[in-house]
Design a protein around this nucleic acid. Structure first.
Length: 423
DNA sequence: TCTGGGGTCCTAGGACCC
DNA sequence: TCTGGGGTCCTAGGACCC
């Protein structure tokens, strides 16, 4: 019998900020999205004040000030580094680890009987992560991934931060305390339908007739029902699968009206996407660019465009990809609009190794030179920071479209100049 | 002034093939 | 009443995840 645990960092982004600001313990903290747009992470204290997920900052600013809520711009460099520290602790302690997102991981806990059973071991994991990283986590244990997820929901409200559904007689009672909308795989649309037929919690969902589940919620919904019943349908993934699409997009700090600015923004987004593409050892066959105005402003003229450029041969060369993006921009651009957001998308992705060489391929030496140049670029930026070496088409200074991050904490763990100081 | 960003999977329907 | 019967590939859209 397999046993899965889901380890989930509590209010992860907020917890990262708290590690370096211990004075914020027990106080409400929120973290904002890019451009300080809306709330994307809240501590329980902030939730208790009634701050919803996605709350627009400009509407809540006064409330936060009056109630003493600590507010941070998102600092993904910090969160990414803290995440990898948490994952390293888990990898040391568990036989199999699947990093599921920046703040969650599945762990295989089969065969932990010697160590006092999965629940006791889950408690050990939790204590070790807290001691070595300062990040509090909750651990849910179950016979399937979906059950582990549900157990994790229940663990969140416990002081010891651990809950196991394995081998307990009152499993049905426990599952009846998990809202159906909180079940992994059940989004707003399915929750609405389930409630309309009188299913409101996880215990009810697992009693749903399987043919009906298949018909109304496709095979993925059927898997959810089976997993809740203890039949494992979703295995552990050992290595992360290479991405089939790579996207880089951003809302602008201020609306953008000049084509030169859009060209700079798209160049920079494409540089980032190309670096991601190379990091996973892939080539892209199709580049897309898109841009749109602010749909919230109903009295302004609206435009939304998307242009795709097939690449003559699959590539990961930033120069070629930027050229494709700028070429796409020529088709995409419409003067007289205030653009709010733009981005690039790379698709038709294939592995660089084992690639079919095309009939009109450049020679091996040219390919080598191309690869060496990109490797040097990536190497310099890995060593000295992401913005060290780039392309002139991305602009150099005073990029008016850059995003706003007025409340960002320092890069405590990834920049020598911003290390935390101890008095 | 001000409302995130980055993914995956499934299905239906159309184009095209023999 | 009835209009062949399979396939495959691609795309758009929807639903879901964090």
């Amino acid at each position: 019998m397999p046993v899965f645990a889901l380890v989930d960092c509590n209010s992860f982004y907020c917890s990262c900020e708290r590690v370096f600001r211990p004075g914020l313990r027990g106080r409400p903290v929120v973290v904002l999205s890019n451009n300080d747009g809306c709330v994307i992470a809240r501590t329980p204290e902030a939730k208790a004040l009634g701050v919803p997920m996605g709350a627009p900052y400009f509407q809540w600013k006064t409330f936060f000030r009056d109630r003493g809520v600590a507010v941070f711009s998102s600092n993904y460099t910090l969160y990414g580094d803290m995440s990898s520290r948490v994952m390293r602790v888990l990898a040391r302690m568990a036989p199999a680890l699947e990093v599921y997102s920046i703040d969650e991981a599945f762990v295989e806990l089969s065969g932990m009987e010697r160590l006092g059973g999965p629940e006791a071991y889950a408690g050990l994991l939790r204590a070790q992560v807290l001691r070595w990283t300062g990040i509090p986590v909750s651990v849910g244990v179950g016979a399937t991934k979906t059950l582990a997820k549900a157990a994790n929901k229940l663990a969140k409200s416990r002081d010891d931060g651990v809950f196991s559904l394995v081998g307990r007689a009152d499993q049905d009672e426990a599952l009846s305390r998990v809202d159906v909308a909180d079940v992994w795989g059940i989004g707003p649309a399915r929750a609405r339908w389930l409630r309309s037929v009188g299913i409101n919690d996880a215990a009810g969902l697992r009693r749903l007739d399987r043919a009906t589940a298949r018909k109304r919620m496709t095979v993925t919904g059927l898997h959810t029902v089976l997993e809740l019943s203890g039949f494992s349908c979703i295995p552990m993934e050992q290595a992360p699968a290479p991405k089939k699409a790579i996207c880089s997009s951003r809302a602008f700090g201020t609306p953008l009206t000049r084509k030169e600015d859009m060209a700079e923004a798209l160049s920079e987004y494409m540089s980032r996407a190309a670096a991601k593409l190379r990091r996973q050892g892939s080539l892209a066959g199709l580049a897309m660019v898109f841009a749109h105005t602010n749909e919230f402003k109903e009295n302004e003229p609206q435009y939304s465009g998307c242009v795709s450029r097939p690449l003559a041969r699959p590539t990961a060369d930033t120069r070629v990809l930027i050229a494709a993006a700028l070429d796409g921009l020529d088709r995409l651009w419409r003067p007289g609009f205030r653009f709010k957001k733009a981005g690039v998308l790379l698709t038709a992705i294939q592995a660089e190794s084992g690639r079919q060489i095309g009939l009109f391929e450049e020679d091996a030496e040219a390919r080598q030179r191309r690869r060496r140049l990109m490797r040097t670029l990536d190497g310099v930026n890995a060593r000295w920071g992401r913005q060290t070496m780039g392309f002139a088409s991305s602009g150099v200074k005073s990029r008016s479209w850059r995003m706003r991050r007025d409340l960002k904490s320092p890069h405590y763990t990834t920049d020598w100049r911003e290390l935390p100081l101890v008095d």
